[in-house]
Every structure is written in C-alpha cells, then in structure tokens.
C-alpha cells in the first residue's frame, strides 16, 4: 500500500524537476557572475565603485531571500512597467542576486587572504598589477573559494523551493497540490519531496567535498 502510494506520488513530483533544476542552474550562474563582479569591485581603488557595490551587498545580505522574492515579484512589473515574461525570471533574479551578494564576500575574502608574500614575489619578478592578479593571486584565491561556492550552491538549491510561493511549478509546488487534495498522505508526500531535494543535493555535497580537498592544496594564505 505504501509502495503503491510512492509509485503514485513520485511521477507527480518528477513533473516539477525541470523547474527546480533550471531555476537552480540559472540562479547559480547569475550568483557566480555577480559574486566575481561585486567581489572585485569591492577591492577597487575607486571609492564610488566600492560604496555602490557595498550597498548592493549589504542590502541583499541584510534582508531575507523570501522578502526579496516577494518584493521583486511585485516591484519588477510595477517599477519597470514590464512583465519579465514569467515568474521564472523573477525567481532566478532574486536567488541569483541574493547569493551573489553572499558569494561576493567569499570572493573578496579569498583574494585578500592570499599571502602578501605572493604579491611581493610577483613584484620582484616585475609582474604588472594585472599579471599579478591573473597569474598569481586569482588562481590561488579561486581554489580557496571552492568549498564556500559549493556550500552556497547547496543553500541556493534549498532557496529554489521558495519559487513555488510565486506560482512556479517546481517539485514543492506539485507536492503542495497533492497534499491539498489528499491531506492524509501529507507525511509521505513531504518526505518524498525532501528526498527529492536531497538527491539533487548529493552531487553538490560531493563537489563541495572535492572542492575542500582541492583548496587544501596549492594555496599560500595568511
């Protein structure tokens, strides 16, 4: 009987897989992009650039994702007088900007924590500012970033569940639909939803551990 129920529920949840996965991939790409842009901007010599990125980072880190999601959901069409085409974009932008802000701190911190001696050795070899960044600092900083990027990607996966709240038909959305028609099945439904997310998280967990072992080698920090 339980087995039958699982066989009923599983394909229903599967229908939401596409939305969950595409939202995750797209928002992760936006987040990584924003992380590097904002992280580097915060290390800029130009104080105006630093202040503007600082404002972005603190606003998105200081308020919660769910509030940002709702805010953008109502604000984007209002403020810009446009419909983005779909709520899919709203969800992706909210998650991407939110985690981009967190990850920009990871980028900034990693670059700053590459040991000063590395820059000095590069200067002694007469490298330009740009070469120092490209050849010496950045490759080491990126290794240091890997575990945190992995962790935050798992956070992003968890965050994608929120898009069901703005009507996107993701895994949780189909779970909610089934629960509302068959309340007594709720335990099994939500357990399976959780298992679904966990299965999606497994490769990310594995990649994060991989990133940890890479980051332990090949960097001089201090």
């Amino acid at each position: 009987m339980k087995i039958n129920a699982i066989i009923d529920i599983f394909p229903q949840l599967l229908k939401g897989l596409g939305v969950t996965v595409t939202v995750l991939i797209a928002s992760a790409l936006i987040a990584y992009f924003m992380a590097f842009i904002a992280g580097l901007c915060r290390l800029s010599n130009n104080i105006i650039i630093r202040k503007i990125t600082g404002f972005y980072v603190e606003v998105f880190r200081g308020t919660s994702l769910i509030v940002q999601l709702f805010w953008l959901f109502y604000a984007i069409p209002m403020l810009f007088g446009i419909q983005l085409g779909s709520n899919w974009w709203t969800g992706v932008i909210a998650i991407g900007l939110n985690y981009g802000a967190y990850l920009s701190e990871v980028v900034r911190g990693s670059i700053q924590s590459v040991a000063k001696g590395q820059t000095e050795a590069a200067i002694a070899l007469n490298m330009s500012r740009f070469q120092r960044m490209r050849i010496i600092i950045f490759p080491q900083a990126v290794r240091m970033m890997l575990p945190e990027f992995g962790n935050y990607t798992i956070q992003m996966l968890k965050g994608t569940a929120l898009v069901s709240l703005i009507g996107l038909k993701d895994v949780l959305y189909y779970g909610d639909i089934m629960r509302s028609t068959n309340l007594s099945q709720a335990p099994l439904i939500y357990l399976l939803v959780l298992v679904f997310y966990f299965i999606l998280a497994l490769p990310l967990i594995w990649l994060t551990r991989k990133g940890e072992s890479i980051s332990r080698k090949g960097v001089a920090s201090g």
């Binding site: 798992i154 996966l157 968890k158 965050g159 994608t160 569940a161 929120l162 949780l172 779970g175 909610d176 629960r179 309340l183 709720a186 335990p187 439904i189 939500y190 357990l191 939803v193 959780l194 997310y197 966990f198 998280a201 990310l204 967990i205």
Partner: peptide, 14 residues
C-alpha cells in the same frame, strides 16, 4: 541540505 520551507510544511501539515 533540504529546504527548511519543506521541513516547515512537513511539521505543520504532515
């Protein structure tokens, strides 16, 4: 590594 939102639903509804 699973969404706290789903966990809330689990505790409240399930």
């Amino acid at each position: 590594s699973t969404p706290p939102l789903v966990q809330l639903f689990f505790i409240y509804y399930a």
